[in-house]
């Protein structure tokens, strides 16, 4: 099951990519589980998404919490705390 992941602002620069398709190994997971899986890949993913980084997440264009579920076909975005206005 595949999801689309987007990165914005500092996270996009840290990751070196704006988006990727990612295959979830399990049936389903939640936002914190997905983040941990991505960070476990090491390299840029660990630097951008590792523990201690201020990261906000949206699922299907809605701000998400760490326990928000993620399923096949979802669009998930990782980004820093917002600074508009």
């Amino acid at each position: 099951m595949s999801i689309r992941i987007l990165y914005f602002a500092r996270l996009r620069e840290d990751m070196g990519i704006a988006e990727e398709m990612y295959d979830l190994p399990g049936e389903s997971c939640d936002v914190s589980g997905l983040r941990a899986q991505l960070a476990a890949r090491g390299g840029a993913s660990a630097r951008a998404l590792g523990q201690g980084k201020a990261v906000r997440v949206s699922v299907n264009l809605e701000l998400a919490r760490s326990d928000t579920p993620v399923k096949a076909g979802d669009e998930v975005a990782f980004f820093p705390p917002v600074t508009g206005g």
Binding site: F8, A9, R10, S58, L63, A77, F79, P80, P81, V82, T83, G84, G85
Partner: peptide
């Protein structure tokens, strides 16, 4: 808007 709308300034 300041805390929830996804804008970022560089």
């Amino acid at each position: 808007l300041k805390t929830q709308a996804p804008f970022w300034k560089k």
